[in-house]
Simulated assay, not measured.
Amino acid sequence: MTLKEWLEKPSHRFRWGGQGGDDCLMFCASWVEHVTGSDPVADFRGTYGTEEEAHAIVEQRGGMVALVSEMAIRAGFERTDSPEDGDIGIIIAPAGLGGSLKEIGAIKFGPLWAVIGPAGVRAKKAECIAAWRVPQ
């Protein structure tokens, strides 16, 4: 299954904690699991169920970039300054009804970044602040 086919799956839905759906970081991890056969965040799946609990885990690990870096290194991924289709990253993009800028986990998709939110999977232009090569 190609990245485009995976992103278009109607089963994607937003849910905190990666049980019955994905939040932004679990969305990236689900893609990684699809590509590699191994879930890099299996120890986190189902351990939280709210935005507040998700933020607490991210803060305990030193922020989104530090958390994803830890999981990516453990999975054998390398950081890249030139993300390609299928690579994962942390972007800065508008989120929520107010449109405030936030760090969001995303998957590189052509010139865009694919993200998941309450409205489903979307692709948007965004500034990437960190990216990791996903072996495919």
Rank of each mutant, 00 (worst) to 15 (best):
A42F: 01
K108G: 06
T2G: 08
G17S: 13
A75Q: 14
L101G: 01
V134A: 00
E51I: 02
C28E: 15
L25T: 14
L67C: 03
L97S: 12
W16P: 02
I90H: 00
E103S: 13
H55W: 07
L25S: 07
F109R: 09
R45V: 14
G21F: 10
E51Y: 09
D81I: 10
G96V: 10
E8L: 14
P40C: 02
A123C: 15
D23S: 10
P94F: 04
A106S: 14
W6E: 04
H34D: 09
A123W: 05
K108C: 15
A29F: 15
S82H: 06
S69L: 01
S38Y: 07
S11R: 12
V58C: 11
L97H: 04
V32A: 12
M26Y: 09
F44T: 04
E70H: 04
H12K: 07
A29G: 13
V115N: 03
Y48K: 03
V41A: 12
W16Q: 13
W31T: 13
A72V: 08
T47R: 11
T2Q: 08
Y48C: 02
L67V: 01
P111G: 11
S38T: 10
S30Q: 13
A93E: 08
G89F: 02
S100V: 07
P10E: 15
G17A: 13
P83M: 02
A72E: 02
